[in-house]
Amino acid sequence: MTGVKATKWWRAMILKLVIITILGFAIFGPLAGTLLWSFAIKWYWPSALPQEFGLKYWANALTGRSQVLDALWLSISIALIVVAVGLLVSIPAGYALARFDVPWKKVLLVLFLMPQAFPQLPVFINMSSIFYRLNIAGTVAGVTAAHLVVSLVYSVWITTATFKSIPEVLEDAAINLGASRVGAFFKITLPLAAPGLIASAIFVFLNSLDEFTGTFFVGAPYIQTLPILMYTASMGYNMQAASVIAIMLTIPSLVFMAILERFLKAEYIRGLGV
């Protein structure tokens, strides 16, 4: 009896080890390659590791008046504007969708989902021709607008789910005690909604920071955000420079992944109405 148990245990252990090896290699392999390239000065086939390691390409990217730093600040500025404008329009919209008897509520929610759930490229192509006529193609304003429309789903859906999760009784109690409707919203509902609003801001920020297609069509060639710079470097086989930017763009996502871990529970996703 114990023999059978032992073989079963071994089989489970071996299966686990096989899964760890395959999954570990499959998931970490491509990222490890990019990380190695960012620190490689010389790496010729068929050497298993770079012949020469160094911080040269990191130094190039991060010191002095480098193109990479300019692109980084531009990307961050655009992302912050997108977050600000996005929250400004999404908080009232999310509140209304959560609390009011808005006609065609389902249709409206699907409409806000559309930019993420339908091919985006043709929309960006036409946006670029419309923006060109309006003279905002190739400007920060144009790129910001492109980022806003694709991140609207995160801000509207997450704020709606957040306001839904806050009991309406709390607002009613505040109003009962003499607060105005607007006062109750700012004093009671908004502070309670803060974690959800922060989650939505993070999604919007990352989405804007990493956005490529819209920036490429609406902003090219004047607006050089970090993703555009990375793409140009990678297409030009400038592996080190591209890898440095790739790592720079990955770090914020991984940091926020740790923060969002709380929010990314399956139950929360369910709250989004999926």
């Binding site: 491509p30 990375m230 793409y231 990678s234 790739a246 763009l249 996502s253």
Partner: peptide, 9 residues
């Protein structure tokens, strides 16, 4: 958490 563009590269 890895954007499409970075996956491509």
């Amino acid at each position: 958490f890895i954007p499409f563009l970075i996956v491509g590269h």
